[in-house]
Amino acid sequence: MKRAYRNRDLIKALDPDDYLRIYQLTTLYDFPTDMRVGLNLAFYRIFAIPHMAELLVRSGEIIDRPKKRAYDTGLIMYEIIAHGFDHPRSREMIRLLNRVHKPWPISNDDYRFVLAALMVVPLRWLDRRGWRPLLPEERDASVRFYLDVARLMNISDPPTSYPQAERLFDDYEAEHLGSSDAGRALMASTQQIIVRHLPKPLKRFGPAITSGLFNQPDLTNVLDLPAPNPVLVRLIDTAYAVRNTATRLKAARTESWFVPGRPASSVYVHGYTLDQLGPEQAGRSTTL
């Protein structure tokens, strides 16, 4: 069983200042599927902030091209995670993020909330459904990774510790969480992405499954999702418990799941190049 904990033990042996490598081991090696789910859930939280949801609807990307937007968002982030901040591919992705966000009236507080969501929501998911407990070094690495993102995107006063990120995230949601036509439209459009791997007979249960993943009634209510069903939540927890037991019996990953340029679903059947990521004509467009 100790074979499963190889990467955890490697993290323990690393210098905390090697936070990029720690974040890579957590995200790309030990929790590849869970971190993808967690990062998606962090992004969906934006839909429950009315003024941010309205801005996303105005951009047209999520409504008109939900699958491409979803895959592009993930690929951009994983390019940065996999390569670190000094690699040419990462630098191009940071330039892309700055280009597509610059024309829009996004406040620094909104940026800080998104950063906090990316720091906190995936790790809360792992706390609930991950196959092993997180180390303090992994929480610190998540914060320090996104502090680098904040620096490169000129976001001021970001949270500098995990407890601070949690407070910022929770306080912002307590003040701004709300229902809106825009948020409901974004969630409805995104459902096709969430249920894409479900067997066809189960796809109609997509909204209920999404609610079970969130398991937060105030959030699902403003997104026009059904209230979390306790039975379904227990079934989801049971499925993850079985998965986690199997994971603990396997050897740890020694290679990253992410391969730059790889095929990605039906969006990039033959793989992708960096200039394909983001909105059309991202270099000249004002589209998010």
Rank of each mutant, 00 (worst) to 15 (best):
Ile209Trp: 05
Pro230Trp: 08
Arg112Ile: 03
Leu277Asp: 10
Ala252Leu: 00
Ala165Leu: 10
Met77His: 11
Val259Gly: 01
Val269Cys: 03
Leu118Lys: 09
Asp64Val: 00
Glu79His: 06
Phe43Trp: 14
Ile11Thr: 15
Leu274Asp: 06
Arg8Phe: 01
Leu115Val: 14
Leu202Met: 12
Thr245Lys: 12
Met119Gln: 15
Tyr44Gln: 07
Arg253Asn: 11
Glu138Arg: 13
Thr190Gln: 09
Arg243Asp: 00
Ser59Met: 04
Arg234Val: 02
Phe113Gln: 12
Ala185Asn: 06
Gly60Cys: 08
Asp237Ser: 12
Phe214Leu: 08
Thr160Trp: 02
Thr26Trp: 03
Asp34Glu: 14
Gln192Asn: 04
Ala188Lys: 12
Asn108Gln: 11
Ser59Lys: 01
Gly74Met: 13
Ser142Glu: 08
Phe205Ile: 09
His87Leu: 02
Ala13Glu: 12
Leu126Gln: 04
Lys102Glu: 11
Tyr172Trp: 05
Val195Gly: 07
Ile63Met: 05
Leu135Met: 10
Asn108Phe: 01
Arg3Asn: 11
Met1Gln: 11
Tyr172Ser: 14
Trp131Pro: 04
Arg196Gln: 10
Ser90Thr: 14
Gly261Thr: 09
Arg89Met: 14
Tyr19Gly: 02
Ile155Met: 05
Val121Glu: 14
Glu166Asp: 05
Ala117Met: 10
Met153Arg: 07
Glu175Gly: 01
Thr247Phe: 07
Ala185Asp: 12
Ala48Gly: 14
Leu223Ile: 06
Arg58Val: 03
Leu75Tyr: 05
Met93Arg: 08
Met35Arg: 09
Leu56Trp: 13
His83Pro: 04
